[in-house]
Amino acid sequence: MDLKLDHHNEDRLTIVEVEGEIDVYTAPRLRELLIDLVNKGNFHLLVNMEKVDFLDSTGLGVLVGGLKRVRAHDGSLELVCTQERILKIFRITGLTKVFGIYASVDEAKEAHGKDK
């Protein structure tokens, strides 16, 4: 499956919907979207990965790059993910300590609201 990307704003949070495979071929599209969102002033990103079938280290690199960019503006990049096969990659690489990972968009929104 190819990569499908969409995004919308809810309050101050930009929710990025990702569906399909994030790999060395498709990851540049996600990178471009994250860069574009940050360039347009969206510094609080929530990437919903519930429909991601595949994620490799190239995809991890894009997410880390996005995190670095939003942090440069005191922003945040958090994830929604409950799929064990995807979470396993974050655990193996130690990135569970770097990203906020939530079980649902609502849970992330609630946590984000408490930070305000």
């Binding site: 060395v24 990178r31 490799d56 280290s57 190239t58 991890l60 690199g61 894009v62 880390v64 790059g65 996005g66 995190l67 670095k68 193996i92 690489t93 130690g94 990135l95 300590k97 770097v98």
Partner: peptide, 17 residues
């Protein structure tokens, strides 16, 4: 792990990890 040193283009060490 040091966020500042990680490249978003490709993280070779992460791939091997």
């Amino acid at each position: 792990l040091d966020l500042g040193t990680l490249s978003d283009s490709f993280m070779t060490g992460f791939g091997l990890a």
